[in-house]
Design a protein around this nucleic acid. Structure first.
Lengths: 124, 124
DNA sequence: AAGGTCACTTGCAAAGTGAAAGTGTCAAGG
DNA sequence: CCTTGACACTTTCACTTTGCAAGTGACCTT
């Protein structure tokens, strides 16, 4: 991990320096829950992340040790991205964010145990 | 709340459209845990949020119904910001983010029950 | 040789960010 | 009465980030 000057000691402030944007947690979501492993697969998600942003975020997540990149074949070389333990440890964050968005923004819900998604619901 | 076109049905993607930046959750943190109520108090936090950003985020949080603004005195008018139930419901998100940042980025920890902060710890 | 896939990279306009200074309201002090 | 000061923002502007589109290079299939 690159050494980094944090704004403050606050764990929340620090985490937001890594993941405080509209895309990073979606990449983690796809790696953790939706079996996406390749650049292409990540790019094809419903939210249509621009490829330059995806490349930059994967680099950052790799630098910070949440993601690793490995060639899974040669000729042609193809890479698989996967979460490290540090990356997988974000699951409770995803679950809490999802629960809030489901309850208050009417978004869908995904159940990691059954690996199934439930329909969204009207916001209250 | 302003009607808003969400990128997708995903609850996480939706929540990130509201709170996917480096500041929003810190404002919620200060309102929820640190007794900050005024613009000034929020601005004086350790992370030094720029005042234009603070104003814009408070407006957004208010539009989305997580925060309310009320004059607590006249002559001169002074405003107090506070969280609605919808805003308070973000506490589990804050807790999960904080736990991750404490464990993996060496940030400090705050205990809502005792209202005390613990020292940061070296990252592993 | 031509076309296709994958994994990015580049170019560029538009939007967002942040430091600093400014505005308007009112109260208190000299 | 006039200056100073607090509070709650707003404005300005340089700089950075974002996002769309197109391009690149490696390699494979037809």
């Amino acid at each position: 991990m690159t050494q980094h000057e944090f704004r403050s000691d606050c764990s929340i402030a620090r985490t937001l320096e890594l993941a405080g944007d509209k895309w990073t947690l979606l990449i983690v979501r796809d790696l953790l829950w939706h079996g996406k492993q390749t650049f292409q697969a990540l790019q094809d998600s419903a939210e249509h992340i621009p490829s330059n942003i995806l490349a930059e975020r994967l680099k950052r997540l790799t630098d910070w040790g949440l993601v690793r990149r490995a060639a899974y074949q040669q000729n042609p070389v193809r890479y698989a991205y996967s979460l490290t333990d540090k990356g997988k440890a974000l699951e409770p964050v995803l679950l809490a964010v999802m629960a809030w968005g489901h309850r208050h923004l009417g978004g869908g819900r995904y159940d990691p145990k059954s690996r199934k998604s439930r329909k969204p619901v009207a916001a209250r």
